[in-house]
Design a protein around this nucleic acid. Structure first.
Length: 302
DNA sequence: GCCCAGGACATGC
DNA sequence: GCATGTCATGGG
């Protein structure tokens, strides 16, 4: 019986061209195995902020205007969501991590970073939501970033159900002033958020797919409050550009202390790291961020 | 009270 | 081009 089930799944994978081992029915996606998809490792690595634990192992997410629940099962995970296509896109189900992990394991400096974060995936988040979220992230900590974003959605986003709110649209954000953004705790970033709608509109008329990473970064840097690091996070998470290595305080430490790099500014550190890791840069950076900010703190590294 | 957080920006040299 | 000061806010 089991063999038959597995061969059926493999057939489905070939049929859909999908690497992740899963099946779906209405409103429900079942994932088999835990090394290609792990919500803790995906969500707790600072790429996305609208999630919360509903118990010690299960998670609830709101992305754009979708409510998604992820429950751990014996053999893997079950994802509950109305729009399964949205979920596949959000978690990049068509990306094969077996190959990526194999390539990372071949690089001496980083060969161990995957073990503590099996199932981590780079997400594919909404560009406007990502721009706003990472403007809020600057010189801030993840706990407070989450808090500010939740207040923003609750007070400015469209109500989905009794206790869930969508991320504000460009139009909704554009109607709010500096005082509002201060009132939700955005601090000095309030003036950036008050202008983000009008500056982001310039990107809507652009076919971003046709732009090189450098060209798209150049356009993102025109947004007030978006500097090199925030732009690189947007490039990585919203546009899935992998030739990008966002350097924040944590990655600066890794660069100087672990890699013994010689560049002086974060921009040059980033360029140095991308030169070294190429199209694996985005993945390696994210595994490293999880390693330093979660795994090491939890004492999972000796 | 100080230090820190997924930094950006203006100023001065 | 590079270095420094400043910008809110809450948690440790």
């Amino acid at each position: 019986m089991v063999k038959y089930k597995i061969s059926l799944i493999n057939f489905a994978k070939i049929l859909w061209g999908i690497m992740l081992n899963y099946t779906e029915s209405v409103g429900k996606i079942e994932i088999f195995g835990k090394d290609e998809f792990n919500p803790k490792h995906i969500l707790e690595c600072g790429q996305f902020f609208r999630y919360k634990k509903i118990n010690d192992i299960d998670y609830e997410i709101v992305a754009s205007n979708n409510i998604i629940k992820i429950v751990e099962t014996k053999s893997g995970f079950t994802i509950f969501a109305k729009d399964s296509q949205f979920v596949k896109n959000l978690f990049n189900f068509d990306t094969d991590y077996a190959e990526i992990k194999k390539e990372i394991a071949d690089i001496k400096e980083v060969k161990d970073i995957v073990k503590v974060a099996e199932g981590l995936r780079i997400m594919h988040t909404d560009p406007f939501e990502t721009v706003c979220s990472f403007i809020i992230s600057q010189n801030n900590n993840i706990k407070r970033i989450k808090l500010i974003i939740e207040k923003l959605c609750k007070e400015a986003g469209t109500k989905i159900d009794s206790d869930h709110f969508a991320f504000p649209t460009i139009e909704q954000m554009g109607k709010l002033d500096v005082e509002f953004f201060r009132s939700i705790g955005a601090g000095y970033r309030a003036k950036y958020l008050a202008e983000v709608s009008s500056s982001f509109k310039n990107l809507l008329s652009v076919d971003t797919e046709k732009l090189s990473t450098e060209e798209l970064r150049y356009r993102l840097l025109k947004i007030l409050g978006v500097g090199r690091k925030v732009a690189d996070c947007i490039l990585l998470f919203a546009y899935n550009r992998m030739d990008v290595f966002p350097v924040d305080v944590w990655m600066e430490r890794v660069y100087l202390e672990n890699f013994l790099g010689k560049a002086k500014t974060r921009e040059k550190m980033s360029a140095d790291l991308v030169k070294r890791f190429g199209q694996l840069s985005g993945y390696i950076q994210q595994y490293l961020f999880y390693y330093k900010t979660v795994a090491e703190r939890e004492g999972r590294i000796q």
